[in-house]
């Protein structure tokens, strides 16, 4: 049977790893390759790199660091941020990324999902969804890389996840914005609701603060992977310890 995946997320800006709270106030936490290598060694199952400013700037991630990472690490990784075309996707996949994640460009042009899935196969197309409660419903946000440009999209999160899967994504990362960076636990209720409509792998993002939060999200929302950033970057949780704990709690993890 499959192991539950532990996925450190590295927000990238200008070739460095940064981390903010609720998408603001980014601080520098280190060099991309150095952190990637450290996490791979500590037992991370996968890595996600988000170029947090690329969507807002309207340009795309620089493939140069993608191949630097691919050269160094022996676990899968996903690249996100401003991928708007087949050419953008191809550059990253051919540089060695295992998957690409699309968010804002898919909202602006949903046909992009179909095109990418046809060209590269669903297995390497991930739908990133930034979601929070607005007017009593979970809705999708856009342009979260730059606070000045944030705008509310009216799509409902559950509808958008269903549509993305119909169009061909092979995985969904649900980032629960209300929980992001505050380390109060994952948004179990929302993740469980999305799980019910999500037939592809589902990755939880936003809110990890303690080891127990990972256990809860795997057991209660039945997600396939859990993503976290600050708790790993700041050494609050060590990946080896986390996996030993989850294994002791009866969850299947890769040692």
């Amino acid at each position: 049977m499959l192991a539950k995946r532990i996925i450190p997320c590295l927000d990238v800006r200008d070739g460095r790893v940064v981390k903010g709270v609720k998408f603001r106030d980014h601080e520098d936490v280190g060099d991309i390759v150095k952190l990637a290598r450290r996490y791979a060694r500590e037992g991370a199952d996968e890595l996600v790199f988000y170029d947090i400013a690329a969507s807002a700037r309207g340009d795309t991630v620089e493939p140069e660091w993608v191949s630097r990472v691919a050269r160094e690490i022996d676990i899968p990784f996903c690249v996100a941020g401003g991928i708007r075309s087949v050419e953008d996707a191809r550059a990253r996949l051919f540089a060695g990324a295992d998957k690409i994640s699309i968010n804002t460009p898919a909202l602006e042009n949903p046909d992009l999902i179909d095109t990418l899935a046809r060209e590269f196969g669903s297995q390497c197309i991930v739908l990133g969804v930034d979601s929070r409660i607005i007017d009593g419903a979970w809705r999708v946000h856009q342009f979260t890389g730059d606070p000045d440009k944030t705008l509310t999209d009216h799509r409902k999160t559950l509808d958008w996840v269903r549509e993305g899967i119909e169009r061909g994504v092979g995985e969904v990362v649900l980032n629960c914005m209300d929980m992001d960076g505050v380390r109060d636990g994952y948004d179990i209720e929302q993740l469980a609701a999305v799980r019910a409509v999500c037939s592809t792998p589902l990755i939880a993002s936003g809110g990890a603060g303690r080891k127990e939060h990972f256990k809860s999200v795997f057991e209660l929302a039945n997600v396939d992977g859990a993503l976290a950033a600050s708790v790993f970057h700041k050494g609050v949780i060590e990946i080896g310890d986390l996996k030993a704990y989850l294994g002791d709690e009866g969850l299947r993890v890769r040692p």
């Binding site: 049977m1 499959l2 192991a3 995946r5 297995q123 092979g170 037939s199 592809t200 792998p201």
Partner: peptide, 15 residues
């Protein structure tokens, strides 16, 4: 096969 309780595709670390 699409199996109850398992997602498609098969993606991740398996023994």
């Amino acid at each position: 096969p699409l199996t109850e309780g398992l997602v498609w595709p098969h993606m991740g670390w398996n023994a």
